[in-house]
């Protein structure tokens, strides 16, 4: 998302919070959803990366956390845009990305005479299956492996801290009328304990 839409979204959140002369427990949840929708959709125009670099980042993020059974992945959750906003404020970090993305394109060009973004999937996964694992460390692959560690870390961070990513795994931060513990969860633990 752009900084403008984020600011607008947060303004909307604040406004929603401020409506309450009376206390309304659902205002915050609704406002929160509004922020989520505003910040997760719409085209993002990169400010730190070039259009081509950003296309490559989109492709890589999609491999790291793809769509799963219609559940959004890293791209749908706006992760590449979030990464770009971070690169825009940290020159060292930006250089690691531009160097890393350039290495990936160079490696793909050497192997298949095509950039990563324009390669076919089997060519793309062929490289990723090597640089996504430390066991493949070698002087030739090390730059790619090191970059992929950083990229994977930030993609996972960005995904699970996004509103969509939170909902992928986390059931909390929600309004409930009653606190209950599912029987299957309680039984699972008690039956494995020495105290059943």
């Amino acid at each position: 998302m752009s900084e403008i839409s984020r600011r607008d979204a947060l303004k909307g959140l604040a406004a929603a919070f401020a409506t309450a002369g009376a206390i309304d427990q659902f205002v915050a949840a609704d406002a929160h959803m509004a922020v989520a929708q505003l910040t997760a959709v719409g085209p993002y125009t990169p400010t730190a990366l070039s259009a081509h670099q950003y296309q490559t980042l989109l492709k890589l993020a999609d491999f790291i956390i793809p769509v799963e059974n219609n559940k959004p992945g890293a791209v749908q959750a706006g992760v590449p845009g979030w990464i770009d906003t971070l690169l825009a404020v940290n020159a060292d970090l930006k250089k690691r990305y531009t160097d890393g993305l350039a290495w990936i394109d160079q490696e793909m060009t050497t192997r298949h005479k095509v950039t990563f973004a324009n390669a076919v999937q089997v060519q793309q996964t062929g490289l990723l299956d090597q640089i996504a694992f430390q066991k493949n460390r070698s002087p030739e692959l090390n730059p790619g492996i090191d970059f992929f560690i950083l990229l994977r870390r930030m993609t996972v961070d960005g995904f699970y801290t996004s509103p969509m990513g939170q909902r992928d795994i986390y059931q909390g931060n929600a309004a409930r009328a009653e606190f209950t513990v599912p029987k299957d969860a309680m039984d699972y633990v008690i039956n494995r304990s020495p105290l059943k």
């Binding site: 900084e3 984020r6 947060l10 959140l13 915050a28 949840a29 929160h32 922020v35 989520a36 910040t39 979030w82 906003t85 971070l86 404020v89 940290n90 961070d157 960005g158 801290t161 996004s162 509103p163 939170q166 931060n173 309004a175």
Partner: peptide, 15 residues
């Protein structure tokens, strides 16, 4: 009921 994404950097820091 706010979360990490209500801060633009989500905890990565202003830089």
């Amino acid at each position: 009921m706010m979360g990490p994404s209500d801060f633009w950097h989500r905890g990565a820091g202003e830089a």
